[in-house]
């Protein structure tokens, strides 16, 4: 085990808070349902980039706060994010070397998985089933992935987050 000095934790924190901001920022009613899962994108990025620092636990916490923020069942996002973080952790060495568009495809699968879990949980607690619009945030999130990835990579390099 080599000892890696951790620093730049505040950068990760700030990026997650920005993700929350984007999650609750008021949008016109039509666009509201199309909003991508910003926190999920940011979590996936950090797990890919720093798997030794950001893992299932952090993802679970981020999801828990997200639940409190948007008023979903406490634990719904937490479960979804933790699962996705686990999968990303398992696959990070493969996903990392993919070209950007292939990465975006893997991210699409992960985002769809989050949606699927939220859909199941909604069904379990007896809420009416959502229509097809429910799935679009995953697609839009995929389109945003290259932007998020490049942006966060620049940030990570500039502040030498390790």
């Amino acid at each position: 085990m080599t000892i890696v000095r951790h620093h730049g934790g505040w950068v990760i924190l700030v990026s997650i808070i920005i993700g929350y901001l984007l999650t609750v920022l008021p949008l016109p009613a039509e666009a509201e349902q199309l909003r991508p899962d910003w926190s999920a994108l940011i979590i996936i990025y950090w797990v890919l980039a720093l798997p030794q620092r950001v893992g299932v636990g952090v993802a679970w916490l981020v999801g828990l706060f997200q639940d409190a923020l948007v008023g979903t069942l406490l634990g719904a996002h937490a479960l979804a994010f933790a699962l996705v973080a686990y999968l990303t952790l398992k696959l990070h060495q493969r996903i990392r070397v993919f070209p950007l568009w292939q990465q975006a495809l893997s991210v699409l699968v992960l985002l769809l998985l989050i949606r699927l879990l939220l859909y199941w949980i909604n069904g379990l607690i007896g809420r009416p089933a959502a229509d097809w619009v429910f799935w679009t945030p995953a697609l839009i999130g995929t389109l945003f992935w290259p932007v998020v990835f490049v942006f966060l990579r620049e940030i990570r390099r500039r502040y030498r987050v390790q």
């Binding site: 609750v24 920022l25 909003r35 008023g71």
Partner: peptide
């Protein structure tokens, strides 16, 4: 407060 919540619940 003008913040958007989960779009599938009326909160």
């Amino acid at each position: 407060m003008r913040v958007d919540l989960d779009p599938y619940t009326h909160l």
